[in-house]
Structures are given as C-alpha cells and as structure tokens.
Computed example of a mutant assay.
Amino acid sequence: MKQIPNILTLGNLFCGALAIIFILNAPQYIAQFNDVDFGVTAPEPVYWASAMLVLAAVFDFLDGLAARALGVQSPMGKELDSLADVVSFGLVPGMILFRMLRIAYMQTEEVYSMNYVLLAPALLVPCFAAYRLAKFNLDTRQTEHFIGVPTPAVGLLVASFPLIMLFNPYNLGHYFLNYWLLYAIIAVLCYLMVAEIPMLSFKFKGLKDKNNLPRIILVVGTAASIPLLGFASVPFAFVLYVILSLVFKPKSI
C-alpha cells in the first residue's frame, strides 16, 4: 500500500516522458515561403503532448491525495514527486514553448535569420522550474500556502496554448503567433515561479472556514468560464488564481 503514491508519481513522469516523445517525433513537411522551401513541424503531436500534461497533472494530484489518505508520506516520495514534476511541468512546457516560438518565427520574414539563440529563452522555463522545486523542498514555510506559482499550474497553462491555437476561441490563437508575446509569457512565468509571493494552495480545511472563499471563487469562476471560453478558460483561471492570491494573501507565511 505504501508504494501506491510512488506508483502514481511515476505515472506523472511516464506521461511527461510520453509528451516529450510526441514533441520530438512530430513529423515535418515542406512549406514554401517566398519561393524558398522550409521544413515545418506538424502541430498535431504537440496537441497530444498537451493532453499528456493534463494526465500528468491528474497523477500529480492523486499521488499527494493517496499519500495523505494512506498516511505514507515520506521524504523519498517528496523527492520523487519533484523529479517527476521537473520533467512534466518544467521540461515539457519549455519544449512546447520552443516549438511555438519556432512556429511564430516561421510566420515572419525574420525566418531567414531564425536560429536556436532566438528560441533558447523557452528553455528558461525548465531551469526556473527546477530551481523552484529544489527551493520548495527546502522551504519549511510552504505548509498552508505556496510561495511562488507551483509548477503544475505553469505546466497546465502552457499545455492550453496549442489547444487554444487549434480551436481558436474568439480568434485568440492568432496572438500566439507573435513571438514577442511568447517571450513576455516566458519572462512572467519564470518570475512567478521563484517570486517571494504567497500563493493559494487547494487545501480545504472545512466547509465553514472563511479562508476557503478565494478557493471557492476560483473553482466557481473557472467552471463558469469553460462554456464561454473553452480552452481559453485555462489562462483565465491562471490569471484569476494569481489575482486572488494577491488579494487574499496571508499576513504572514
């Protein structure tokens, strides 16, 4: 029984590894731009990578739930969870953003000068995610609240981007073809992961606890946005989460 949480954590890692395979093995085809042939990556496998990130998040939620329910929380389980998270919610989002930057540059005349230096900022996401996870394991203040945005939230946010581009609600997918917007998103996410900002956790202590108010607002607001925004409800929920954390931040951590 004590290995059930660890098995669920490994399920998280398995999904993250599968997402990487989808991204790396995305087939390429030839497209013409100003009479010049370029190799373009087919986007469908990236959508599957997004789906794998969602499944990884489910495993990540269940492993902690199982550990608490079975009373088998352990330092080893905590370290294993961080190792899985740095792959699923650090490396995979970085690779998705790398692909999205490449696609964005392919839409412009600057495609002729595109190189890996221009795409490399996407890899800052796994670097900051690793730093955050190492810091989280050592920081004893993070019992009732997080300090900085947790990596699964970042992973789910980035996972929604290819799906927004696919379904294009309210023509929002068009904006992800702007590489300056992608650079800005990368910078903001890296900052939020390591910032000394108290963020809400999802630990409900009781139905009458007044501290549950921001969590209830987040859940209700997100659920209400899904029929209207579709996959764009994920960025909406992320922004709402940050705002509620700032408004309802604890007096002390």
Rank of each mutant, 00 (worst) to 15 (best):
Q3P: 00
I4W: 10
T9V: 12
G11N: 10
G11I: 11
G16C: 05
A17K: 00
L18Q: 06
I20L: 15
I20R: 01
I21K: 11
F22Y: 14
I23K: 01
P27K: 07
I30N: 08
Q32I: 11
F33P: 00
N34M: 13
D35H: 15
D37G: 00
V40F: 14
A42W: 14
V46C: 08
A51R: 07
M52T: 08
M52P: 10
L53W: 02
L53K: 00
V54Y: 12
L55G: 02
A56P: 04
V58G: 04
F59A: 10
D63F: 12
D63M: 11
G64D: 01
L65I: 03
L65G: 00
A66V: 03
A66M: 12
R68N: 03
L70I: 02
V72F: 12
Q73P: 07
S74R: 14
S74P: 14
S82H: 11
A84E: 02
A84L: 08
V86P: 00
S88I: 03
F89I: 06
F89C: 02
V92M: 07
P93Q: 06
G94E: 05
F98I: 09
R102M: 12
Q107R: 14
Q107Y: 12
T108I: 09
E110M: 15
V111S: 00
N115L: 08
L118A: 05
L119A: 04
P121Q: 05
P126S: 09
P126E: 06
P126Y: 07
A129I: 05
A129K: 03
A129D: 03
A134C: 15
N137T: 05
D139K: 11
R141M: 08
T143G: 14
F146I: 09
G148I: 13
V149T: 13
V149Q: 00
P150H: 03
A153C: 12
L156T: 10
L157E: 02
L157Q: 02
P162E: 04
L163H: 02
G173Y: 11
H174T: 13
F176Q: 07
N178T: 11
I185F: 10
C190E: 06
C190K: 12
Y191G: 03
P198Q: 08
L200Q: 01
L200M: 12
K203R: 15
G206L: 12
G206V: 01
L207P: 00
K208H: 13
K208I: 03
L213R: 13
R215E: 03
L218H: 15
V219Q: 02
G221R: 08
T222A: 13
A223F: 15
S225D: 05
P227K: 08
L229E: 04
A232C: 10
S233K: 07
A237R: 11
V239M: 05
V239Q: 01
Y241C: 05
L244F: 08
S245E: 06
K249E: 01
K251T: 05
S252C: 06
I253W: 14
I253L: 15
